[in-house]
Design a protein around this nucleic acid. Structure first.
Lengths: 350, 350
DNA sequence: TTGAAAGCGCTAACAT
DNA sequence: ATGTTAGCGCTTTCAA
């Protein structure tokens, strides 16, 4: 129960009575309709104020078919994600978006604990929720499919593998990558290695495409310079070891986490950063790895992604065009560009 | 809106029609009442099954006065907490509890962004929520007060400063501390230092009391051995530096995070762990610091705390007796007890 | 054991 | 500009 039972809650009817108007007028005031005379409105508002009245959300939800609740679908144990700097920032953005839109932010496990046939937890399935946010990772494909099958309102963060229509929010993975690699090339690097995740990660593919774009534009080779592994520090380490045979003078790591592995591998093999090998990463997350020398990286606006996703959920129903947010190059020490071209070293607030 | 408008949802009435019974009977089946003939029940359940019907939660909430929604009040930016191993585990437990009780888990910022006079965010104030969980930290005092004033159903995790009646879940801070310190004493340590948080942290006070209990029981002195600072690695470091003057042969750190600082201070000052100075901590969190040598620590069941808090919220309304969960000593290498007394080195599953 | 009917508190036609 | 009325989909007496 919400509160102790000895606090009978006021209803819109009673507010009306106290203000000497009908319940409809109170409703109009409540919902900001303007066809209410100013003095009447004031009177009603005064009563609302002094009584501390709040309309019953369940009644509202019943008639309006909106609960004011949106959810994030968690694909793994909640506390795994809590450690992840990406989710940490994303959740922060979602929370901000909810506050801005006066929505309640709920967390849903992806599947019911009892291993239901349906991939969805009863809470989502039972449609109390106005809409959900799902991140596009390999494991989420079936959840997205299930949500679509049930015609749930959803926004996908990132880029799902299948190209079925969904409203989604993404960042300029490809463009950002191209900027990163171009930056290296412009500062004299000729053999830029790519260390990125294996192909099931769509963002990795997009970032790889940006890498190719930049190499192609500079007419540089990529022979033996591309090495894929898990998007972890360990993966970055292994990929870099493999890459060394190709004698890179720079490494573009598709994630900062992988860049951490790149650092370790380079250091262990006696390569100085950036003197022998320059490094640029991607992500720039607030809680991401702190490397020495400071990593030059492409900053993606994850918090903004979260807020945008909520905004999309709050603003309507159908499938909308993807929203793709810009990334920014943040120049540190690892790229060897101590005097970066003007305008390149300013990271926006994210 | 919940779903695309072209999916008109089934109502209990329609289910009744299809099953050839009244809506009341369907409701009885739905709510597991037993005065329904077995074959009728089966028929209704079959229809529910094949139609994939779910009762409308808003309608249910309206009449039952329960939303099935519980919330965690977040006292700082969401993403600060995400980094915190304590919250990480707590949220994990809350999530588990919600899944078990078929509740939706929402996250609420403590105060409305627009700096309302009221300390509560509108969502909570507007009572959509069946109950909330608040952690007892210094900043939460006014939130707890505000919730109490509004007669919200709440469970406090930890121990608030004021002794106003609340339902709360806590762990055996005092008893656990006593076990930790007794363990050190039993293994020959005579000068056990206390490194803990300053007195505004109630759990710190409780843990200090346990320390005193153990010293008193062994008739050992505490002169110059108690040093308080912020409950951070840095605080643990500073407190230890101060402590060194008292020539401790062991340090009991009231949190593992502080223990991390203890390690650093001891190491920097040439003390070997555990040979010169033994160390025992408190928390044992899944994502807590990993120290070398492995820290002996008092493990508190934070996940269980979260689940219990939800259980309390789900099970009733009034103020209940505090639930205090047991802690367990987990013996590592830092206490110098390589052959721990039987039964002491088994940490339960948490 | 089952059905009919009232009503939870609100919004939104529809009147006036 | 304001009031009246009819539901939203459910649970729950109350009758049968």
């Amino acid at each position: 129960m919400n509160e102790s039972d000895d606090t009978p809650h006021l209803t819109i009817e009673q507010i009306g009575r106290r203000a000497g108007v009908s319940r409809s007028t109170v409703s109009r005031v409540l919902n900001g309709q303007r066809d209410v005379r100013a003095d009447v409105r004031a009177r009603v508002e005064a009563v609302i104020q002094e009584t501390g009245y709040h309309p019953n959300p369940a009644a509202r939800a019943l008639v309006s078919k909106r609960s004011g609740l949106i959810g994030l679908v968690m694909l793994s144990e909640v506390d795994e994600l809590f450690g992840d700097p990406y989710y940490s920032a994303l959740v922060n953005g979602i929370q901000q978006g909810c506050a801005e839109n006066d929505l309640i932010f709920a967390i849903f496990p992806a599947s019911s604990p009892d291993g239901h046939s349906d991939a969805l937890t009863p809470q989502i399935a039972q449609r109390f929720v106005d809409g959900v946010i799902v991140t596009a990772v390999p494991q989420s494909a079936h959840v997205i499919a299930a949500l679509r099958a049930r015609r749930k309102h959803m926004v996908v963060v990132g880029h799902p593998d299948d190209d079925a229509p969904v409203t989604r929010v993404d960042v300029e993975n490809r463009e950002g990558s191209a900027v990163a690699v171009t930056h290296l090339i412009r500062h004299g690097r000729q053999r830029v290695g790519f260390v990125g995740p294996t192909v099931e990660y769509r963002f990795g593919v997009d970032r790889f495409d940006g890498y190719r774009d930049a190499l192609a534009a500079a007419e540089l080779p990529e022979d033996g310079l591309v090495h894929l592994d898990q998007p972890t520090t360990e993966g970055g380490y292994r990929a870099t070891i493999a890459l060394l045979a190709a004698h890179p003078d720079a490494v573009y790591a598709a994630t900062d986490t992988m860049a951490e592995g790149v650092y370790r591998a380079l250091t262990e093999h006696g390569r100085r950063i950036p003197d022998d090998v320059a490094v640029v990463g991607f992500d720039g997350l607030p809680r991401g790895p702190r490397l020495d020398p400071v990593l030059t990286t492409i900053v993606q606006p994850v918090v903004e992604v979260g807020r945008t996703a909520v905004g999309l959920l709050a603003s309507g129903d159908g499938v909308r065009d993807p929203v793709v947010l810009p990334t920014v190059l943040r120049v540190g020490r690892s790229c060897g560009a101590n005097h970066p071209p003007a305008g390149e070293n300013e990271a926006h607030e994210l």
